[in-house]
Design a protein around this nucleic acid. Structure first.
Lengths: 342, 342
DNA sequence: CCGCCATATGACAGCGCTGTCGCTTTTGTC
DNA sequence: GACAAAAGCGACAGCGCTGTCATATGGCGG
């Protein structure tokens, strides 16, 4: 533990502690010579300001909290989601001398709200970044807002108020659907995600828009339900492949379900992408690890989180436009041009 | 931001601030009546001690830092590793009023050491938990130790000094071997990992011990080399399956090699687990995503991290035995009882 | 050469908490 | 009932920093 205080630096540079404080904080009204002398003393002594003392004096915490759905509650693959968010936010924080507090919350746990409130009251972050799907749960949002802490929501879904950062899911889903159509596919199925997840609706409507844009008819039999899990993807695929007229391409509302589709296809002896193209959404790390590697939509989670961090720390208001980070289609091995008609 | 201070509580309870401090910190020498009065006031006012002020006064930070290899630098599967560690450590921290600082460091980046030093000097955590593989890199260890911060290493490898938490690879490998034997397998092959990887030797000797315990002879032809990569697993399997007397079970020293074995088996038309049982080690996320899902050994990362947190916060020294967390065998689809003799 | 203002610097009082120490009760002992 | 020991409680001085305000210094116009 560094025991060097501002007083030591002041003594060595032969100035008052206030002048050292000015130099450290880049305040004006310090003569160049003095400033250099102080900086040299800081270097010589390897002085680091005590963050607690600074926080106490300024009434600030220099902390940002990231609240996300506990990955334990999920099937494992979602850990990539968490890590991406953390990295983006960490980048914004570290560049500005802030620290990051991570707070996983299991929204199925009734104590989650209390634990969020407790964390905020205890650590007093200057802002909270709330990741989806927590970001569209009114009680969670209310808990943070009631604490008086600044809140930035990530992908809060439609009709969001307050500050948020999002990506346009509908647009991305439409782009993916168009991409599949451009490969020649006419029977493109869609596997919906968990109804609770707000983006699900967007993705579905993007799918529909994509179909429309490609001049394709919507076949209700080609839209099946899933719950975002791998298992539900497996089931959905089984259902689709059993159709008299099975699809030649399946677009799943998330990568986990797409992975499940791949599994079922393999079990059914349907080769991907030759006989069936499969596309996912999210670009979780699993997407490039499975075989064939998944064509998917990459949500710019890191960039979104970083942007949220900047908003909090730099006190940006941001217009709506600034806060929509575009998603990107990542073409890998699981999609291919349609070769023959089933 | 809660603006209620200890003074407000003291005034309301009609005691001095020192007495409130005593109650808050559970110190003795407070009469029951007084204590209750203060507690009531705390409840009424929803008072939360200011952590900065407390830190400043006590010269403590109530922070623990977790340093791990940046998942960006890795092949992606390690994000599960990160999340497990975080969760375990978070559990230990939250239970004790500590906060967790996360610090990914890319050990291939020359600035990584500096960034670790800077983080410690800036945030002054009371202890650092260093995850593998950073935990067995001398310069990283030295950087943390030089800072004077308490260090707990996770799986530091053999001949480690200082405080650490580990799991017994040999024991786990023995358990897995015994498990395979218990399924009726007599010819159990072992694919060694990269010689650089310290745990490899442990796993091999555990395999041998498992054989011995099951009363099986060690056939040198059944021990083949690998280098931890999927490709090396493929080669090893090709070699083993070409034997006049091929094994009925293969135990690979890591999951990637086991995945390679699965691939070769599939190419050779050998069905798993019917004709060949395959077991891995590590339980990387890939293990449950491939088909058939891999029977493997799970390192108790969360429990290890939690234990490390306890050691730091509770200032436990811990005897060696306490700090060895047993690994767990995860039985999935890639292993099955021996059905017939080859 | 004086006054005036902008610039540069320092003294000092907190920020909200804990540690030390001293004072006042209570409790225990014979 | 006297007296020591222990328990209960409060006053006050920091912890290391920043904000405020006072003071010192230098430059410039008249």
């Amino acid at each position: 533990m560094s025991k060097i205080t501002i007083t030591d630096v002041a003594r060595r540079a032969n100035v008052s502690i206030k002048t050292v404080s000015r130099v450290v904080n880049g305040e004006p009204n310090v003569r160049d010579g003095t400033r250099e002398r102080v900086q040299q003393a800081i270097l010589d002594l390897d002085y680091r300001p005590n963050p607690s003392a600074r926080s106490l004096a300024t009434q600030r915490s220099y902390l940002v909290a990231l609240i996300y759905d506990d990955p334990d509650a999920y099937e494992a693959p979602s850990c990539g989601y968490v890590v991406n968010l953390q990295q983006g936010l960490l980048a914004a924080c570290n560049a500005r001398g802030f620290d990051l507090l991570i707070h996983p919350a299991n929204y199925r746990d009734p104590k989650a709200l209390a634990s969020i409130g407790k964390m905020i009251a205890h650590a007093r972050p200057e802002g909270v970044v709330l990741a989806a799907p927590l970001s569209n749960m009114p009680d969670v949002v209310a808990t943070v807002e009631d604490s008086g802490t600044r809140l930035i929501r990530l992908s809060p879904g439609p009709c969001a108020t307050g500050q948020f950062v999002e990506t346009d899911d509908a647009e991305a889903a439409q782009a993916m659907t168009s991409y599949l159509a451009s490969l020649g596919h006419r029977r493109i199925a869609f596997v919906r995600g968990h109804a609770k997840h707000a983006a699900v609706q967007q993705r579905l409507s993007g799918y529909k828009a994509g179909l429309r844009a490609a001049g394709l008819d919507l076949d209700p039999a080609l839209i099946v339900d899933g719950d975002n899990s791998i298992a539900s993807g497996e089931n959905a695929a089984a259902q689709l492949l059993a159709l008299e007229q099975p699809p030649t391409a399946v677009f799943a509302a998330n990568d986990d379900m797409a992975a499940g589709i791949l599994r079922t296809a393999s079990r059914f002896g349907v080769s991907v992408p030759e006989q069936l193209s499969v596309a996912g959404f999210d670009d979780i790390s699993l997407a490039q690890q499975i075989y064939p590697a998944l064509t998917t939509v990459r949500q710019p989670l890191g960039a979104m989180a970083e942007r949220a961090g900047e908003m909090i720390i730099d006190d940006l208001q941001g217009t709506r436009g600034d806060n929509v980070i575009p998603a990107e289609i990542v073409v890998r091995e699981s999609t291919a041009p349609l070769t023959r008609q089933h």
